[in-house]
Design a protein around this nucleic acid. Structure first.
Lengths: 220, 220
DNA sequence: CACGGTAACCTACCATAAGTAGCCTACTGA
DNA sequence: TCAGTAGGCTACTTATGGTAGGTTACCGTG
């Protein structure tokens, strides 16, 4: 075999076929992996296919990412960060707590709608099955909700002490879980607009959230 | 080889070693599988080890359950049903909506506390990784929350129509997701008592929930 | 302008674990 | 007594994550 390294999946400018600088290769591999995981989900994606699609041999991938799980974790983390960034930006455009939460929620669902692909990577992970990225998934969820709460608190000036700390963390995660599940439901009902989803979940969460915040502010 | 089938994991009365009626073997296998999945999580558990522990050969397991995933799904479903039963019973002991939700929540967390093992089976699934039991997990989550809402509605006499239907379903799932995430958090903070968890999440969800219910009742 | 060192890659292989084909054997009822 | 069958077993195949060890293009230096 070993014919001309026939144009791989993604054409990188410059470095014709083979031989590409490490950073570039990494990026390319992550891109291909993102797509692959998105369409086949973690378990269904094989490293052999990934290698084939990337026009590269398996050891190259292992040299870059160590293991399938690490590669997956990296993909998830990147997507999670992009999502967080979107939300953060949207939230910062508003000043009133409820408006901020609403804006953040809409941004969140919009991101999912645009990046169904990335979305799949993010959530099939937890659904998907192995308990292996629990850590990664949890971290994302954690950061996501912490972000929203923090951003809300920005305007409320709350900073809970002792006991309230645990509660805040727990509630934060619970909320993130609610968003996650709702996102899953949305997959089967894509006709519902993001704003609608946001309004629903705000109606559900906001009253209690407001109560918790004033309660925290009082006991500080 | 083929020595005396040396006492397997679980001694079944009657049928000494080998040869056991189908139903009994099924039950025994499910028991061993429950424990195995609980300690090793789906991916980490191998069918070879399961067979070894059960004192049986692999094809027997496949004859009973078809595949590792089906076996796992069965375990999850059973546990989910047990959980639902606990919750249902607890909820029925109260009559006021809020009290019912609280009782259900406490029962939910108590179940998890007592059955950490079963719990692991239920939730590592989603975390765990493969997107393969998504269906099963979703179904459980769905039923779980539907149950709680239905039981609450029992006393409120609400039965939404058209549009509200979708919202109710979505919110129902969101709530289940919140409980799930909270349960995950609880694993790292077992010192918090179930009642405390219940109160926290009630403070978070109840106000909005009440609002949604009256809103539905009005638009009916 | 050789030329040694290293970064980027590859071929071939191993190990594990899911799942299967085909045979054997203890019990049951006629 | 003796089929017929439910309950089991051994021994394989296949798929796939992961690795050992060698090969070639590139680049800075004497």
């Amino acid at each position: 075999m070993r014919a001309v390294p026939s144009s791989p999946d993604t054409l990188l400018e410059g470095h014709r076929p083979g031989r590409v600088p490490r950073a570039v290769r990494s990026e390319q591999l992550l891109g291909v992996a993102d797509r692959l995981f998105a369409e086949r989900s973690f378990h269904g994606a094989s490293m052999d296919e990934l290698a084939r699609r990337a026009g590269v041999s398996k050891p190259v991938i292992y040299d870059h990412f160590g293991s399938k799980e690490q590669l997956f974790a990296t993909c998830v983390r990147r997507t999670g960060e992009a999502l967080a960034e979107q939300v953060r930006t949207a939230v910062r455009k508003e000043s009133e707590p409820r408006a901020r939460l609403r804006a953040g929620s809409i941004a969140y669902f919009r991101f999912l709608a645009e990046q169904m692909q990335a979305w799949a990577v993010l959530f099939d992970a937890q659904e998907g099955g192995d308990a292996r990225f629990a850590a990664e998934a949890a971290r994302i969820r954690h950061r996501q909700s912490e972000l929203m709460i923090d951003l809300m608190a920005e305007s409320a000036g709350t900073e809970a002490g002792h006991e309230g700390r645990a509660m805040l963390e727990a509630m934060t995660l619970a909320i993130a879980g609610a968003y996650e599940s709702l996102s899953l439901w949305w997959r089967e009902h894509p006709e519902v607009p993001p704003e609608q989803l946001a309004d629903w979940i705000l109606d559900l969460l906001w009253p209690g959230l407001e109560g918790l915040m004033t309660q925290l502010a009082a006991s500080r």
